[in-house]
Design a protein around this nucleic acid. Structure first.
Lengths: 270, 270
DNA sequence: CATAAATATGCAATATCGTGCAAAAACACG
DNA sequence: CGTGTTTTTGCACGATATTGCATATTTATG
C-alpha cells in the first residue's frame, strides 16, 4: 500500500481547510487512486462532520454551498513541465540537494505525493514546500539567508554542507553558454553552488529557455560530466546538440500544453 | 535469534518517530521476520500507547502529521488577532527567535511590511514566510527537520542555536497549566524550546485558548520571569489573573477583528 | 428535454488482520 | 543434566478492509 487511509483523509482535510474546497477528480489524481476511493473517503468524512459533500467534491461544513464547478485555473506553467521532467531523473531513495531558484521550487512541487527521498536544501521556500511530506526526509542547511538569493550561503551553511555527500545536486542557474557553462549572477551563490556540485556524485540543472545563451558573471559548472541538463520544449535545437557533443547528458521536456490533466494542485505560495 | 524483541520494538519506535509512519510490510522486510511478528509488535506497542494502529502499518498516536503550512489555515481569524498582538511586543531592530508552531507562523505573517528585525528560526515554513522581506535579516537554523514538529531539532540545530543570543524568544506551546507552566507534546521539541529560552534575554508565548489548562508531557518553561504571555480575548479571566500574580507579564488581545464573531465552532455538524 | 458528468451500489480481486496452533528456543528449577 | 514451562515465531485459515470496475441512478446545465 502506498499510503494509509487515515493519512489520505488527513491530507484531504488539510487541503480542505487550506483551500476551503476540494475536487474529487483532483484528489484522485493527487493520490493516485480512483475517484471512487476519494468519494468513499469524502462520504466517510462527511459522516464525521469533517466536510460537506457537494456535487464534484466537498466543502468545509457550515459554509454556503458554492457550486464547485469553477475549476481552479491551474495553468500548466512552463516551470511545472520542466519540474516534472526533472523529477523523472530523481532516483527514489537517493539523497538530493536542492539548490536555490524558482525552477527548483517547481521541481520540489512536482515531486509525487509519496516520493521517498532525503532532501537537502539551503532554501527556506523549498524546505517549507517539502516539510511534512510523507516519505521525505528533510535536512535544512542553516545560516544567514542571503536576501538576494533567498538561501543560506554563509560560512555556517558551507560548514554544514561539507558534512553531506548528496547523490544528486539539482542546480539552479542564472545563465548557460556553450563556452562558459553554467553561471550565476551573485558571487556567494556561485561559490556555494560549486561546493554543492563538488560534494555531489551527479549534478543536474533545469534550464528555462530564457537562460539559454545568457552569460552570467560567476562560473558554476563547465559543460562536462558529471552533469545533466533538462531543457524546455522550445530550446534551441542546435545549441542543445552542441552541448550534447560535449559529453553532457541533455534531456528535453515535452511541450507544456494542457493536453495532460496533470494539474497537481499543491503549491500555495505565488 | 538475530535481535531481541525489545530491540526490535525500540527500532520500530525510532523509525516511527523519525518518519511519522511505519508500514508492516517494510518493517518485516527490514528485520527479516514475518509480517505476523511485526503486527504483534505493533499491536503490543499500540496497547502501550506508543503508536496508533492503522490498516497496513501504524502512525504516531494522536497528532496527525499535517503540514504546518496548512495548520495555519485552520483558525485564521483568531490566530491573526493573536499574531498582531504579539507583534506589538517586538522591539524593532532586535534579534528574535521564532519557535515552531502554527501560531508563530501567524506572528511572522503579522509582521508589518517593513518591520526591521533579525529573525532566527528553525522552522522552514516561518523562514519561507520571512524570506525576502525587506528589513528582515533572516538566520535559518539548519538540521534534520522533525516531521512531527516541522522544525529542525537535532544536534546540528542545537549547535547552531548555541552561537546565537536572541533578545526575544517567541515560544510555541502545546499546553499551559498554572502548576506545570508551558509544556510541549514532543520530547525533542521541548528540549529545543528550553535551550532557546535559556539563550534568549526574554521569552514570549502566544497562547490560544484551546491550550489553556492543557497539560502536555514535557516541560518547557515555568510561569516565572523572564516570560510574557499573550492570551486571546476569551481566555479565562481568573486563570490569567492568577498567572499575572506569579510575576509573568500577561497581555490579552482584543476580539477578532473580522465581522463574524462566531467563526470558531468545534465539531459542528450541519 | 437531452446530454454529459458525477454519484451510489453491488461485486470481485487483493491485501491485511486476528486467532489458533505447533515447532523451536529460552528459561526455571530440581 | 533432565524436564516442564514460558516465550517467541511462523504458518494456516477464516474474517475484515480496501480498492477498482461495471452498472444503474442522480445531478447539473444548456
Amino acid at each position: 500500500m502506498d499510503q494509509f487511509v487515515s493519512e489520505r483523509q488527513a491530507h484531504i482535510l488539510a487541503e480542505l481547510r487550506a483551500k476551503g474546497r476540494v475536487s474529487a477528480q483532483d484528489l484522485a489524481q493527487t493520490f493516485g487512486v480512483s475517484e471512487d476511493t476519494v468519494r468513499r473517503d469524502l462520504r466517510e468524512m462527511a459522516g464525521r462532520g469533517e466536510c460537506e459533500r457537494v456535487y464534484g467534491g466537498a466543502l468545509l461544513p457550515g459554509r454556503q454551498t458554492v457550486p464547485l464547478k469553477t475549476r481552479i485555473a491551474e495553468q500548466p506553467d512552463r516551470k511545472v513541465a520542466l519540474g516534472q521532467k526533472v523529477v523523472e531523473s530523481i532516483v527514489e531513495g537517493s539523497v538530493v540537494f536542492f539548490d536555490a531558484g524558482s525552477t527548483n521550487l517547481a521541481v520540489a512541487r512536482s515531486l509525487p505525493e509519496n516520493f521517498g527521498l532525503t532532501a537537502v536544501t539551503n532554501t527556506p521556500a523549498i524546505a517549507a514546500e517539502l516539510s511534512g511530506r510523507p516519505g521525505v526526509e528533510l535536512i535544512m542547511i542553516g545560516g544567514r539567508v542571503d536576501p538576494a538569493v533567498g538561501a543560506a550561503l554563509d560560512a555556517t551553511a558551507i560548514r554544514q554542507l561539507e558534512t553531506i555527500r548528496p547523490d544528486l545536486c539539482i542546480l539552479g542557474a542564472c545563465g548557460l553558454t556553450l563556452e562558459g557553462g553554467l553561471a550565476a549572477d551573485i558571487f556567494e551563490d556561485a561559490a556555494f553552488k560549486r561546493l554543492a556540485c563538488a560534494a555531489s556524485k551527479n549534478s543536474l540543472a533545469a534550464i528555462t529557455s530564457d537562460k539559454l545563451g545568457l552569460r552570467a558573471a560567476f562560473h558554476v559548472h563547465a559543460l562536462q560530466a558529471p552533469l545533466s541538463l533538462v531543457f524546455e520544449a522550445d530550446a534551441d535545437e542546435a545549441l542543445v546538440r552542441k552541448i550534447s557533443l560535449q559529453g553532457v547528458e541533455a534531456h528535453r521536456c515535452g511541450a507544456a500544453t494542457s493536453s495532460n490533466g496533470k494539474s497537481v494542485s499543491r503549491g500555495n505560495t505565488p
